[in-house]
Amino acid sequence: MNMTAFLTIPSIAVLLDFIRGPLVWLSFIIFGLGLIVQTFRLLNLTQKKETRRLAPGKEFVPQATLSKRECFFRRLAFLKITIIGQNACMVMFSFLFHVCLVITPIFLLGHNVLLDTSFGFSFISFSEKTSDTLTLIVLMSGLVFLLRRLLLPRVRILTTVYDFILLFVAIAPFLTGYLAHHHIFNYNIMIILHILSGELMLVMIPFSKFFHMVFFFISRFMIISEHSMGAPKRSWQF
């Protein structure tokens, strides 16, 4: 039996309608509520910490004023002590991966059309060519992560099967979306797989290591540590 015919079998069609309809909403609800609950639970593990204020001491010397140019070169030179200087390649791929991972689905024309038909509103959309490029960047970075995991001893020694599964879960919606859009393999099958993998990823974000999406901001911006950013005022309370 050919695939398209298979998808029109009545019971299968009902299943497909469920995946395309209620299951989408369900995933978004689990994603949203999950994020809220998990964020709350994480915040509950932190506590406020007083910072001592000292009277200005004699050691306090104001910094020499530097020209803008000098400032810029100093900053550039001191990138060496950050992760950007130490692992530039990985940071670049990771940055591209994350930015594209988040913005592509939001500003994708196809998704916005769906939003518009359901709610009568939509975000601005990238051109199809842009979205295509961004998707390819996600896929390429995913490939870099995969190769790193397979080839670099320092990553391999930490790697578990779960890491591959999660990498696949993160990549799958992009891979299937790309294949569907370009009608590679069977479109109908691909689009179903695309919807399913997107739903799976959404549902997994609050309950897997993808939750670093929130953890990152809490632990780096709210918790006092050598490496924290901004003006954190809290500490862990374990």
């Binding site: 070169f73 100093r74 030179a77 001191f78 060496k80 002590i81």
Partner: peptide, 13 residues
């Protein structure tokens, strides 16, 4: 280690 790199950078600058 980090302060070593910082000092090295300062001295190079």
């Amino acid at each position: 280690q980090k302060e070593v790199t910082i000092l090295q950078t300062e001295l190079e600058l």
